[in-house]
């Protein structure tokens, strides 16, 4: 049996309509997994889901809304339960990156970044775990960042939010392991997405200089690590933070 065959399984990717989330949705669907994708707005989301269904022959679901709002999150899982009666994989990916130097960090910035990256991840982890524990199996993959591991000047709030994701990964992995649910995190480095699109030529060169492999990563580089953690190749892996950064050191 091919451990990468995900036919019949169900994955939910938050922030799944673009960037790393979209790459994950494509790769999981390409391995036969039925996919629910979330985006903040409905614009283009149904088309994205239909595209996955058409290209890969899987069932899909489009779930629009803000991960930072608990009241919006729970109905997504009710919808997944109604459609499939199961959830095998959560890619807890939705996030925002807003830089801010110490001394220039507004309370609103803290709220926006922590609400989406930390609180939103907890809401989704909890709801997904409910569906997974009843089946006695599942894989939760939390998207953190190298900045959450190492820190980065100018990104104190983002670093705090992504460090929170690592903490919740360790704690939930311990709590959910006896129930058959694995919880891991992926920590991307410098990846070519909308989040870094406006970084500027000098900053881009400086970032490349921090990467051992000397190149920016592609979203699919991260998606391949997510596929590993979603699949039966990683059935004995939990409570880990997997760096996908080409040897980057900040």
């Amino acid at each position: 049996m091919n451990p990468l065959d995900l036919a019949g399984r169900v994955a939910f990717v938050t922030g799944g309509s673009r960037g790393i989330g979209w790459a994950c949705a494509e790769l999981l669907a390409g391995h036969g997994c039925n996919i629910a994708i979330n985006g903040r707005t409905e614009t283009g989301l149904a088309e994205r889901a239909a595209d996955l269904a058409q290209r890969f022959g899987v069932e899909t679901l489009a779930l629009a809304g803000d991960v930072a709002r608990a009241a919006e999150v729970e109905p997504w899982y009710q919808a997944i339960f109604r459609k499939w009666r199961r959830l095998d994989v959560l890619v807890n990916n939705a996030g925002v990156l807003e830089p801010g130097l110490v001394g220039m960090i507004s309370a609103d910035l803290v709220d926006r970044v922590i609400d989406t990256n930390a609180k939103g991840a907890i809401y989704n982890l909890q709801a997904a775990a409910r569906l997974m524990t009843r089946a006695g199996r599942g894989s939760i993959i939390n998207m953190t960042s190298i900045i959450g591991v190492e820190g980065d000047a100018g990104n104190t709030v983002y670093a705090a939010s992504k460090a929170a994701v690592i903490g919740m990964t360790y704690a939930a992995a311990k709590e959910l392991a006896p129930k058959g649910v694995r919880v891991n995190a992926v920590a991307p480095g410098y990846i070519e997405t909308d989040l870094v699109a406006g970084i500027g030529a000098d900053a881009h060169e400086r970032r490349l200089g921090q990467i051992g492999m000397g190149r920016i990563g592609a979203p699919v580089d991260v998606a391949r690590a997510v596929l590993f953690l979603a699949s039966d190749l990683s059935t004995y892996v939990t409570g880990q933070v997997l760096g996908v950064d080409g040897g980057m050191r900040i």
Binding site: E74, Q78, R85, Q126, A127, R130, L131, T133, R134
Partner: peptide
Amino acid sequence: HMQLIAGIEAAFDIMLDTADV
């Protein structure tokens, strides 16, 4: 309590909300 929630969900094939839990 969490075992009870799981048992009720399985018995009636429903998914409870966090507020219910």
